[in-house]
């Protein structure tokens, strides 16, 4: 199977990583990089030379704080590029198992973090209704959300492979 062309996909999304001069302001500004193997400069480099990177765990270590993007002297939208590379990976079936679980919560409940018994009790203690005014309370709204997710093919995208 051919590897997806990351560089061109970034270009199509209006993200020009080729202007990167590898100065390293991005990785020096990265709070996650203090604790992990995430090296933002290297991610941009790999994208420039189109090296296979879709299995790199580092892609998922970015907390999307935008420090790198704010400080890049070439104005490269680095976080947007990471989003795009992550999307290519997910569409290739590469996804953390925990993220698959969160996706199934969204499909089922319309919330990534659905209500639980403990919070229902907290709500009642505060004199609030046990269910909030969200999809949790309106079944038709939840059906609409689920219809939208199917229309986008999200159910198939995150299905267990």
């Amino acid at each position: 199977m051919d590897e997806p062309d990351v560089l061109n996909r970034l270009k199509d999304a209006g993200l020009d990583v080729l202007t990167c001069m590898q100065c390293g302001v991005c990785s020096g500004s990265c709070p996650s990089g203090r604790y992990t193997s995430l090296n933002t400069r290297r991610i941009v480099r790999k994208a420039q030379v189109n090296t296979d990177m879709l299995h790199d765990k580092e892609l998922w270590m970015c907390a999307t704080c935008y420090n790198c993007q704010e400080r890049c002297p070439r104005g490269i939208r680095i976080v947007d590029a990471i989003f795009t590379i992550r999307t290519i990976a997910v569409h290739e079936g590469i996804m953390l198992s925990e993220h698959r679980k969160v996706s199934h919560l969204l499909l089922k409940h319309g919330h990534a973090v659905p209500i639980n018994d403990e919070t229902r009790q907290k709500r009642e203690k505060l004199g609030m209704e046990p269910l909030p005014e969200t999809v949790h309370k309106y079944p038709q709204a939840l059906k609409d959300v689920q219809k939208l997710l199917r229309s986008c093919g999200f159910d198939k995208l995150v299905a267990e492979k």
């Binding site: 569409h91 319309g110 990534a112 999809v135 986008c152 093919g153």
Partner: peptide, 18 residues
Amino acid sequence: KGASCCPAPGVFRSFDKA
């Protein structure tokens, strides 16, 4: 009324833009 998850940017925005 009837709003859902925003959807969470770190995860779902990463997975699929549409």
